[in-house]
Design a protein around this nucleic acid. Structure first.
Lengths: 261, 261
DNA sequence: CAATAACATCTAACATGTTACACGCTAACT
DNA sequence: AGTTAGCGTGTAACATGTTAGATGTTATTG
């Protein structure tokens, strides 16, 4: 791969190093044929959707680091598709705030901007506390059973210090609560607005030492839902979410290079 | 323009009738050159951005009706651009829920779905009540002056039954309150999540007979902000936003064809 | 005559070619 | 030495060609 001599390290893409972070022989599958598309609400999985999913995952999981260049052409060839679906996917990621596109210049994994994270945190707080109120009011035994099962698995994951697993269960729990509010598409909106936060949380995983505290907070949330106490549930959620802020400053000290100006 | 005999009226695009709703001689301007793009946070205005703005405006203002087909190629030729920026703009609108894309079939202005509107209403409520709490706490004389000036203009618009102007001032007021919360990018998020609601409100404009009531509600909101009373401000905003729900059912009776299944 | 298979047609999805322009570099000029 | 103008390069933006598939229609078959 040719690099201009003048390019700073920031410009170099790891897509160029070796066989690439996205792995080897990707052959993206197109959806199989089916009639009556418009009537059934089939979720069409096009190539751009698949590219989007792959890149989003790579960014949130920090396989691609903030500030790193994304070379569309390389991504395209690595995934075995043309530039078009890659561009489409990247446009969507730009809307979501996960990449920064500089016209005629380049595309970069978005750096972390404190002000944007603050906004995302605010939005998350507003949405999830509002959602849990509804959920608490309409909670069912089935929901509680699933929440408690999830909590139990969290406990086990915490016992064996399995950060990744714990993180996934945590996410799943928040999704459950969101879904249980009974509002179509709310989870998708919440999850989209949460992507900035998720990225930070992933980076924090290995500094994370408060799984026990988190477990207790989760327990309080579930108890409040069980008692159908909307106010207490909202309060518990608020307490839980606000913990993030403190950890964030910690990350900024440890890894300043991930942050924007 | 050639139409297949079998095409139902739903499929016919008004882009095909006469010189088109988007008007005559559009020549989309590209941004002029400027150095240091990445440092300054200049908002780049590309063609796809312009197409996006034009189409979004057309949809929200109901120049394009729900369910109507959007013919990319016609839009492209009417705007004097190629299909690419049009596709990009439409993808973005699809993310926003303003158009429905059926793969290999067609693109349509999104119909109104009660469940989606309900979700949008919920999100709007959550975000704007949370935002106004912050705004109330940090309100300044300058903000209050601008809000009161806006309110005064609302009063005048109401006097001369200028619905459009009233609507615009209303929107501007909500934007101001959102901005005053002091969170980067919050207005953009709120405005995006509000687009479904805005569309409904536009359609309701001509059935709207509650400008006086709206004015009173706005007054209550501003008063609460002036007193820096976060709880009362949030309550006033909640009351204000919840009025929408009732009007919505009214619209569904009057114009059922705009709604999805 | 109903069910179904083959076909025609139209459009989004995808591929690829081309252009404009942002940025780094360098050289000229003050 | 600091500033600016011009050039080279690489990328996103844009244009356009091609393909696949969803749907309506028609033909075919029982």
């Amino acid at each position: 791969m040719l690099l201009r001599q003048s390019q700073s390290v920031e410009w170099r893409s790891i897509f160029g190093s070796g066989n690439g972070i996205l792995g080897g022989d990707w052959i993206l599958q197109l959806r199989s044929s089916s009639r009556n598309y418009r009537e059934q609400k089939v979720v069409s999985v096009t190539r751009k959707d698949q590219v989007y999913t792959i890149l989003r995952q790579a960014i949130i999981s920090s396989q691609l680091s903030p500030g790193e260049a994304i070379r569309k052409e390389l991504v395209a060839s690595q995934l075995g598709v043309s530039r078009t679906p890659v561009s489409d996917a990247i446009n969507r990621l730009a809307d979501e705030g996960l990449v920064e596109i500089y016209p005629q210049t380049g595309t970069f994994v978005a750096r972390l901007w404190l002000d944007k994270i603050e906004t995302a945190q605010f939005v998350r707080m507003a949405l999830e506390t509002a959602a849990i109120r509804r959920t608490a009011e309409r909670s069912t035994p089935e929901l509680l059973a699933r929440l408690r099962q999830n909590l139990e698995r969290q406990r086990k994951a915490a016992d064996r210090l399995d950060f990744e697993q714990f993180y996934e269960l945590d996410e799943a729990m928040h999704d459950m609560i969101c879904d249980a509010a009974g509002l179509a598409g709310l989870r998708e909106i919440a999850s989209k607005e949460r992507s900035q936060i998720d990225r930070v949380r992933r980076l924090l995983l290995h500094y994370e030492t408060r799984m026990i505290e988190t477990l207790i907070e989760h327990e309080a949330i579930i108890t409040a839902i069980a008692e159908k106490d909307a106010n207490r549930a909202a309060k518990a959620m608020e307490t839980h979410i606000s913990q993030m802020g403190k950890l964030l400053l910690h990350l900024r000290e440890k890894r300043p290079e991930l942050f924007g100006s």
